[in-house]
Design a protein around this nucleic acid. Structure first.
Length: 562
RNA sequence: GCGCCCGUAGCUCAGUGGAUAGAGCGCUGGCCUCCGGAGCCAGGUGCGCAGGUUCGACUCCUGCCGGGCGCACCA
């Protein structure tokens, strides 16, 4: 998949490498000295041309010559690449700047038009199988802001990886086993008896959210007081089963409203049921990485980069969450994923080293696991921090967020910051339908373009135009700047995917929208005159393609009207 | 105390070791008899501190200061 811009860059790289090889004798480089890894990048400063390389600067040490002299020597050996270079100059401390024939931009729009919805797609992934696991919230409550950020981030990462050619699966790990679930059962039991009119307090460290009151009420509606007199274990099991079904269904619905769909919902309990946890423990034991102490079974995590050793089986015989998680990650690789990505809250960072350590201990490659740690979300309303606590049941849920600010603004806000930056989410800003809100700025550009084409369609009914737009007519500063930026999209996509950083796409889309608005404001499209109008329509059309493709990656809609 | 993340403009944040560090919001002043004014144009202040590596550091290393989060037989 060779895009225009990438081709130009590659051509310059090849020509430079060849020049460096040819200049070896003059530069005093023997055959063993490698040519350093130079960059061919787009200079920030326009006067510095279309591309610049630092090759001469990097050669100063091996060649032991001043950089500008090296640059001179390189230039004398530089065969003009297959592209049209108008001017090459040595500048600054020793950069070599390439000024291209500005006509190269003429190829960009036809390229975008031809690719359409696939413009920006790459083949970097080689169809390798990648799994992205995200949210994986405890089914003990509703989804909160941290889960929402994880959902937006994980889904966009998955979309990006798919766009660059990976075979991607989205997965939700359901923590339906362990202490917290037992805790949930006890809280439910209390709400159940309360619903039946009895005085039965929710345990101190239980779940106090009002949602459990509703769950209990529905349980009573279905089963009445049948379980009041039943065996406690039976009662709790029934309540739990009922609640988990309900909670998971609700989570799935919330996430779908948020534009997130999973390929797999993976049950932790299923690992226990089919003996996968036991088998994993056995494998670790055979490999000599377990020992007993104080009646518990420990994993020698400290031998694999962990901060300390970890308990896998408690003295009471119950395996820990970590034991199940090891089995789970083993299972991921056994299912054939070559690359596994977890999106976790920063409060789990301590878990990363031991998780990777456990993979190493099992004989898997710990580098095949990447954990994207995402910092916490702080919610602001009316300039004040909204305090949240799951334990006390006081937190804003994903559903409430969607009701208040809408899906597009929410998705955009969550994904516009890098994962390792704390997120201050301003509810007032996110729900404002004004120019303060950056998400509408992008969508507005898209809607504007659609509006132009609606009018065009209206007019074309009288006098349809059929010809080929002449992109050479697009000579205005704002036009060229916009085209240039549209040409960047494939590289932006690749970078964002490799870095697992969808926020780059958010910023890029905003940038493109801004360039379009500037162009639009400075020049007429419809009625611009014979030929020019068609060229500008093509530019608008291609801008729409890029905006749409970018917004798609973020899970934000591209509306035709607003 | 130890570990991870963060510290860039008044606020919220971008910025693969490159040349003169950007955007949004807020503030001020302008802009179409015309394709959607949710738009455009103009105006300015900043890389927490101190060392080090490098031809070159916001970026890498060390120390310090400040903020967040971890350091359970919880998940």
């Amino acid at each position: 998949m060779a895009y225009l811009l990438a081709g130009l860059r590659a051509g310059i790289e090849r020509a430079l490498r060849a020049a460096a090889e040819a200049a070896r004798p003059e530069l005093g480089l023997d055959a063993d000295t490698p040519i350093p890894d130079f960059t061919v990048e787009v200079p920030r400063e326009k006067n510095h041309g279309d591309f610049a390389t630092n090759l001469a600067l990097l050669l100063t040490k091996p060649a032991r010559r001043p950089p500008r002299q090296i640059a001179d020597t390189l230039l004398s050996h530089l065969k003009p690449p297959e592209i049209q270079v108008r001017k090459i100059e040595i500048a600054g401390p020793g950069f070599i700047n390439f000024h291209l024939d500005p006509d190269w931009l003429h190829g960009v729009l036809p390229e975008i038009e031809a690719w359409g919805g696939n413009y920006g797609r790459r083949t970097l992934g080689g169809r390798r199988r990648v799994q992205v696991e995200f949210v994986s919230a405890n089914p003990t409550g509703l989804l909160h802001m941290g889960n929402a950020r994880g959902a937006a981030l994980g889904d966009s990462i998955a979309a990006l990886l798919a766009f660059v050619g990976f075979d991607v699966a989205r997965e939700f790990y359901v923590n339906d086993a362990g202490h917290q679930v037992e805790n949930l059962a006890l809280s439910l039991e209390a709400r159940y008896f309360q619903a039946l009119g009895q005085d039965w307090p929710v345990p101190e460290d239980g779940y106090h959210g009002a949602d459990l009151v509703d769950t209990a009420a529905r349980f009573v509606a279905r089963h009445g007081d049948r379980y009041a007199a039943a065996d406690a274990g039976e009662r709790r099991a029934a309540l739990l089963c009922f609640a988990l079904d309900e909670k998971l269904a609700a989570m799935r619905a919330s996430l779908e409203n948020f534009g997130v769909r999973y390929d797999v919902w993976f049950s932790e309990q299923s690992l226990h049921n089919r003996g996968a946890v036991r088998e994993t423990l056995e494998l670790l034991r055979r490999r000599g990485h377990l020992y007993e102490k104080d009646g518990a079974l420990w994993f020698r995590a400290s031998a694999f980069g962990g901060e300390k050793d970890e308990v896998l089986v408690r003295a009471n015989g119950v395996p820990t969450y970590f034991a199940a998680d090891i089995a789970y990650h083993k299972d991921k690789f056994d299912r054939g994923f070559e690359w596994v990505i977890n999106v976790w809250g920063a409060d789990h960072h301590g878990h990363v080293a031991r998780m990777k350590g456990s993979l190493a201990a099992l004989g898997y490659d710990p580098d095949a696991l990447d954990v994207v740690l995402m910092q916490l979300v702080r919610l602001y309303r009316g300039g004040e921090i909204v305090r949240m606590s799951k334990r006390t049941g006081q937190y804003v849920t994903l559903d409430e967020l969607l009701a208040e600010v809408g899906r597009d603004a929410a998705r955009y806000f969550f994904v516009t910051r890098s994962a390792d930056s704390h997120l201050d989410f301003d509810l007032d800003l996110a729900k404002s339908r004004t120019n303060e809100n950056p998400v509408y700025y992008i969508q507005y550009a898209h809607a504007r373009i659609c509006s132009i084409f609606r009018q065009l369609a209206e007019r074309e009914r009288q006098a349809p135009w059929n010809g080929t737009p002449n992109v050479a007519l697009l000579k205005e500063e704002t036009e060229r700047a916009l085209i240039r930026r549209l040409a960047d999209f494939p590289e932006e996509v690749a970078r964002a995917a490799i870095d697992l950083a969808p926020h780059r796409i958010a910023h890029y889309a905003h940038d493109v929208a801004g360039l379009f608005h500037s162009f639009y404001n400075a020049h007429r499209i419809l009625g611009a005159g014979e030929g020019l109008e068609e060229a500008r329509l093509l530019l608008a059309k291609c801008t729409r393609v890029v905006l749409r493709n970018a917004l798609n990656l973020l899970g934000v809609s591209a509306p035709e009207r607003m």
